[in-house]
Design a protein around this nucleic acid. Structure first.
Lengths: 214, 214, 214, 214
DNA sequence: TGTTAAACGAGACGGTACGTCACGTCTTCCG
DNA sequence: CGGAAGACGTGACGTACCGTCTCGTTTAACA
């Protein structure tokens, strides 16, 4: 979907203006992160965030259109900082490292639990979806895409590889287990997915592209 | 409907007794399905379902512990009936057919939209998670597992294949696109996933199994 | 306007149904009377009444359409019980006694202060005006009217006397001082008004009724 | 406008300084009068006045301490200009003319409705009461007092007449009907009150003055 | 004429109360 | 006597204004 790195030097999580006072903005995001970590997204209320931040509710509504957009912004920096840039030199090493970092965050941090709650919220709040795509999906997929692009450039993967499918094969199973909770996200999972995806990608170049679609 | 679902001749979606009167039960589930299709899970309220069903709210609470469990039951039969038993004779054919049926439901029906809402709700309501696993995840994965087992039995896939990872590689990308909405769930997606997963599975037998570390 | 005694065996202060539970109704009216006496009508809030009554705000809104109608009902019984039926045998005695009772209530009780607040509120809330007229103005004027009617029957006042004007001459100055606060409502005021009104009424029978009006 | 208003060459409606810029002051009072006429005192908000006047809220608060004091000043000149100085030569003529002018204003103009709202507001806002007495009650009663004083000087009324009671008997019924709304303020009312008050006043000289009791 | 301090418009801020909604429980009363 | 109807206590919602407080920007008096 997006190939170039999104130029969002600052997130566009809200559709509204942000608070004039940096003090209020920081207090709100800090309180939101706190409540999010303690109680989860469902239990988080604007009223409690306002109280903890020492801020009027209206000030929050002035800056964020919903609980979701606020939680998203509170979540973003923290999560992204746990997903380091990765470049091991081989596609297999890159995939393994990226999955490992993701699994560790998801299993070990409150930020990981917020991720689950936010993905859920996005399904239920269409407006939040817009911000989610711009500030999370596009950003994260941009990083992953560069990983796969490098592998193609190195000749590790066939030139005609479908990068999007590659990315979905790597992270799809991970998000699937995260959301359905049917099996553990552990080291074995990381190894197996890495092995199968890399094997499939190297073997799968010959896939006949169907003609009915672009 | 299902090619021999294990033992749940009747779903265990609720932890409570069900309404004494079958009439009320049908009216409630019908009204719930209606509201679910029209307005989605977030907008559905117990009050509206009760009104439409011509039933007291207490009667609903007697049978279902939350909006989620009610929606789950209203969703289940309908969704599962759209996922027919599959046995084309080859793993490639089976995977393609299964994904196709899933994609068609998800793209074309209100039931598909309910699926998204329910997965979201499950993340936010732990109690609902129990019912979700018993009545949805286990059932559906049971079907898929038999599909892969048959391929191993036929010798299409190596004997030591990790069936769970296979299943996650097939459906993980699908659910990933469904929840993140970053790319279309179309025929090309079905073909590419089928090809890469089958290629990876056939090639991936040599993967060195890590110990039980994790 | 009204001649016959209004048959309001129970007040019609609200336009809505009243709470089903007598317990809630009593708690609400009690709390309202309390807050009214302590803080006055302006400072009284539905939230505080609800809290003190141990009742949800919605229960109050279910029974009363505004702060005013609630305050009115909380005020009514108490106020009316301070204005005893009067029958001294002479118009002069009756007027003096009635004014005296009124002045004592108004000067000495929190109910008196509520009266001021309610009259003010009625000016600002047209809906409240309807209830005010039915439950207060009509009731009180009915009592006063009987007082004047008896004087006419006794022959103390001329047969053609305008009863409404009489009543306004008695109570008009009183309410005027109450609202404008320019002079004290004391015993001297009662005596002077009584004397002048009775003198005017006895002398004023010969007033030529203007013909331009009914 | 007034037949020599005592000393308030400029009203003391506010306890604060006024806006430095005459332009702002006029814009604010104009906007306030407009909103007052359109929506009444209850619905008038400082925010709307500020917006209409093209002025910051702080500029209003710099000049007036509350909605009431602002409304009072917006109301004053306009109302007083409708109550012309009166001197017909007889007490009866004076009373009739004064009541007539008052009734016409009250029945026919938005200024009349503002009067009601302001009297109400005065009951609920003690601080406003101070300004109200200084700028309205004292001014108006000053006019009326001179009217009665002249009648006494002319010998129409007994020398010992209680001027305050006279004034309350004239205007009390009028304000009473205005606030309670129980009967019309029409020509008949004017005539009857005039007749009865004048009759009472002329006959009532013999009233035994009670001591200073009360 | 150029400088500078004030007053200004705009409106964000921390609050309070509003009136509404849906929750999950409890009560009433009808069939 | 079971269930529909819906009132109940609760608590969060999102809004409206409050009165205060920064912000630049006029604006007008003095240098």
């Amino acid at each position: 979907m997006l190939d170039s790195v999104p130029d969002n030097s600052e997130p566009k999580v809200t559709t509204r203006g942000r608070p004039r006072s940096e003090r209020a903005r920081r207090a709100i995001l800090g309180a939101a992160a706190e409540v999010l970590a303690e109680q989860g997204l469902r239990a988080m209320t604007i009223e409690e965030v306002a109280t903890r931040a020492g801020v009027g509710k209206a000030t929050i509504y002035r800056g964020w259109s919903s609980k979701g957009t606020l939680a998203l912004e509170a979540f973003l920096d923290e999560f992204l900082s746990t997903q380091p840039p990765i470049d091991t030199g081989s596609i297999e090493g890159d995939v393994r490292s990226a999955l490992q970092a993701w699994v560790e965050t998801v299993n070990g941090t409150t930020t990981g639990r917020s991720l689950v709650g936010l993905i859920a919220e996005v399904q239920l709040d269409p407006e939040l979806g817009v911000a989610w795509h711009h500030d999370f999906v596009d950003v994260v997929r941009g990083q992953h895409r560069r990983m796969v692009d490098r592998a193609i450039a190195r000749g590790e993967l066939p030139r005609g590889s479908d990068v999007d499918i590659m990315m979905d094969l790597i992270y799809g199973p991970a998000y699937h287990r995260l959301m359905q909770g049917h099996l553990a996200l552990n080291q074995e999972f990381v190894e197996l997915v890495t092995a199968m995806v890399v094997a499939g990608a190297k073997a799968g170049a010959a896939v006949p592209r169907v003609g009915t679609l672009g």
